[in-house]
Design a protein around this nucleic acid. Structure first.
Lengths: 207, 207
DNA sequence: CTTTGTGCTAACAAAATTGTTAATCAAAAT
DNA sequence: ATTTTGATTAACAATTTTGTTAGCACAAAG
């Protein structure tokens, strides 16, 4: 065997495919480009994964699992106050986005262009969202009765948080063009957004 | 001539192409699907527009002109107060988005997948953004000296406004999945977001 | 040393997609 | 009435992209 550790090539193809699919989407990706980027002939891609569709499915299901894991966190600790819960939500959210900045754009693009795949993604999103909204609304309600926050609709709040967190990453090439590479230093941009977004949300909640 | 008004077919092809490109992007769009949707053979598409690339360029330049026109508005009226200016900005922004809800996702997707086209779009965005930021910052500074608002960075403010306005439209299929078709009634969703987003931004500005 | 199995390649085949052309058809101009 | 002109189509050609296959290389097992 030329390559004792066959995982190497398989892994290289997967990573190259991930890069290509993330950048160009399913329809824009070319199996030949993927193979070239991985440093093998494109036959290897079929040898390991059979079809372009199959590699894509593998990658997209990995990504969906990542999202589920990241969002699932919010249900762990029930002792947090509303403000703490929101801070933790934004913090983990931004950290994840900072490391997976082209994932939201990729997912939404694929959901838009592929009606079949859409329904699977939508279902998972709905489950997570429903749970998160219920939890948020409970926290808000009890904070409201204590008089420490306004009577805010959890859905609206969640849309606000998601918008503030996700948009800059989805639109990063244009954001960087418009705001002189403001996102170049990923870490400091992330910390800035954490401060800003948390502040905005807290101000919205204040009585 | 079979079709006296040749504009009809040309127009039908353009509209079908717009629909297809918006949904699937350049690489996902098929000239045959476009022709089929327009009710003609795909040869007509080449007869009128020569290549797929040429139709695409025509559509994308129309879209960019639309955006330039819509964003250019903010420089018309200098007599507005900061709050009025922000309300007008959000209102026009949301109205435009409501009628062109897949444009942001489309543009960003193409900018991501096509490095050449990216630079043209980026330049235009930069010009508009620079002007808008300067104008916003002036208004903020004079409101700050009057003591009616905090000393806020215009860039951050603009990112906040853009995020709150654009994200729900970019992510509409997932937003609708997560929030039980909250965007179905376009008009009322738009009015809700106008109220919400304006309120959030004003709260951020308040001393 | 031969056999065997697996990673690998090059060349090929098939399918999909874009682009072209010659012929047709209908109306307008002459 | 004939010619001309532009729109349209069907069939074809070219290109691109995906998928397949026969066989080579090489290491491990017998």
């Amino acid at each position: 065997m030329k390559n004792i550790n066959s995982q190497d090539t398989e892994y290289k193809i997967l990573k190259a495919a991930e890069e290509e699919f993330m950048r160009k989407g399913f329809s824009g990706a070319r199996t030949t480009s993927i193979a070239e980027a991985a440093g093998v002939t494109h036959a290897m891609l079929h040898y390991y994964f059979r079809t372009k569709e199959k590699i894509f499915e593998r990658i997209i299901s990995e990504k969906i699992m990542m999202i589920r894991d990241i969002i699932g966190f919010s249900f762990e600790d029930d002792s947090l106050s509303l403000n703490e819960m929101i801070h933790s939500l934004i913090e983990r959210h931004l950290k994840f986005l900072s490391e997976n900045s082209d994932l939201p754009r990729f997912l939404i693009g694929e959901v838009f262009s592929n009606p079949e795949r859409a329904s699977i993604v939508k279902e998972k999103i709905k489950d997570v969202a429903t749970l998160l909204i219920r939890k948020l609304q409970n926290k808000i309600d009890s904070a409201y009765t204590k008089g420490v926050c306004r009577n805010i609709d959890a859905k609206s709040l969640l849309i606000d948080i998601l918008s503030l967190d996700v948009f800059p990453y989805m639109a990063s090439p244009l954001i960087n063009a418009a705001f002189e590479d403001i996102m170049e230093d990923k870490e400091s941009f992330m910390l800035l957004r954490l401060k800003e977004n948390y502040d905005i949300i807290i101000r919205k909640l204040k009585p």
